[in-house]
Design a protein around this nucleic acid. Structure first.
Lengths: 116, 116
DNA sequence: GCAATAGTTAGGTACGTGGTTAACCAAGGG
DNA sequence: CCCTTGGTTAACCACGTACCTAACTATTGC
């Protein structure tokens, strides 16, 4: 429960970059070739390619080359993995708040770390 | 709509590290002093402090020092910000899938990028 | 086949990140 | 008052990341 580390590492790392997030935002509205993906960013093609590789390596994006054009699709499973982790933390937190409320109404116990 | 960059950058960056994610996972179950937070990780106190600072800088964690003890609480708003972004992308994607389905049943249009 | 287009590879640089050790300061406790 | 505990600061190092330019390959269109 404490260690499913690596894939999540890569996904969050990928999402930590504004360029890559923008790419994801764009790809969510439909697939696009590398060139179109690169257009809004004031940076060289190789730089864009690198970002793309990061996104692909962590499973957020899938690409396939048809003629000389590589088309990029988003892979929603990757996003969901991250969203799930976040959701788990939030629900864990909320559950804790509930339990804390119970204890307070029961014994007026002061707030502290793990009860065990 | 394409650039609310910086805070999200920092949050995802913070979550990209397994140590920091573990810390969040622990803090979700209740506040803890630095020492206890550091205990499960085979690394020096300063390293832990650094991670803590990252978490604090991006608003995921709030800390306060009482005697000589600094207690760390989680700050759920930070998690929610990230979760929201992820959710936006997912819904954007799902909406697109719906629209695509409509078009297909209507005009048998081939799938492509932005319709504008 | 020649030129333009789309992408790729190679190599290099500047900066950021994650860790270390050592020395230090500030409570508490005997 | 002295020692221990808890945290902090400083200085440093190894490695990774995010770009760049230049050169190259592979299609497509004329």
């Amino acid at each position: 429960m404490v260690n499913q580390g690596q894939p999540l590492d890569r996904v969050f790392q990928a999402l930590a970059d504004p360029t890559r997030r923008s790419m994801v935002e764009r790809l969510v509205r439909g697939p696009a070739p590398v060139r179109e993906l690169a257009q809004p960013f004031a940076m060289s093609l190789p730089a864009v390619m690198q970002h793309l590789q990061v996104l692909e390596a962590c499973g957020l994006v899938r690409t396939e080359k048809v003629g000389r054009v590589r088309t990029c699709h988003i892979e929603p499973a990757g996003l969901r993995m991250a969203e799930d982790w976040l959701g788990d933390q939030r629900t864990g937190w909320e559950r804790r708040l509930d339990r804390l409320g119970d204890h307070l109404t029961d014994h007026s116990e002061p707030e502290e770390g793990r009860p065990a």
